[in-house]
């Protein structure tokens, strides 16, 4: 078994480095559901919608929510990102580098940076304050690409977010461009 090569970018993300062929062999791989560290809470919801300046009363008022089909306050989809840690610093980092737990980075590829390009989000039922979210992932595809920031691959991963009852609330198919730093032509402003 070959040694696992890891690289950490300035954001603290840890990438498993390998060849395109090694990466392609991972397509179709799925991860087990993992409960996210933080539950959905009111502070998360308000913090999130404050950032998009959304006055929708469903996100701000339990009383308003009670008058709708939902029977109470709900969360916009994006709040799932708040169920994970900040990952600016963690005590476990005092030990050896730990792989970032997403197939975007654990799949072995040459790239050591990433940019998001495409999203497809499906909502089946809303998340609510108090919900505990579990996340699993499936590696859908890897496609070689070159953009001005560098040479790399489009990596598409579908994530499944379930509530504490095991019901799928949200699926999130995301494509990121994972590229090798320093291989691009750079940004050219429009003339």
């Amino acid at each position: 078994m070959s040694e696992v090569v890891l690289e950490t970018d300035p954001a603290g993300y840890v990438y498993r480095i390998g060849t395109e062929e090694e990466g392609m062999a991972w397509v179709g791989r799925e991860t087990e559901p993992v409960e996210q560290p933080y539950p959905i809470d009111v502070e998360h919801i308000e913090h999130f919608v404050e950032g998009i300046q959304d006055p929708n009363p469903l996100y701000w008022s339990e009383e308003f929510g009670r008058k709708t089909r939902w029977g109470g306050r709900i969360a916009p989809w994006g709040v799932i990102v708040l169920t994970g840690e900040h990952k600016v610093w963690r005590p476990e980092w005092l030990e050896s580098p730990r792989e970032t737990p997403t197939l975007f980075m654990t799949v072995p590829l040459p790239g050591n940076r990433l940019l998001a390009t495409d999203y497809e989000v499906e909502c089946f039922q809303p998340l609510r304050p108090g919900d505990r979210v579990s996340k699993s992932e499936k590696l859908v595809s890897i496609v070689p690409k070159t953009f001005r920031v560098g040479v790399g691959h489009h990596v598409t991963v579908k994530a499944f977010f379930r509530n504490q009852r095991g019901e799928v609330c949200i699926t999130d198919s995301r494509t990121i461009f994972r590229y090798k730093f320093g291989t691009g032509a750079g940004y050219k402003p429009a003339a």
Binding site: V49, I52, Q53, D54, N56, P57, L58, F64, G65, T68, R69, W70, P76, W77, G78, A116, T117, D118, Y119, E120, V121, E122, C123, F124, Q125, P126
Partner: peptide, 21 residues
């Protein structure tokens, strides 16, 4: 989602939003 749900009202469900940046 703010755009779609603000128009669709509180009893709607934003079933799918797909986008390219």
């Amino acid at each position: 989602q703010r755009l779609v749900c603000g128009w669709a009202g509180p009893n709607s469900i934003p079933r799918k939003i797909k986008y390219r940046m």
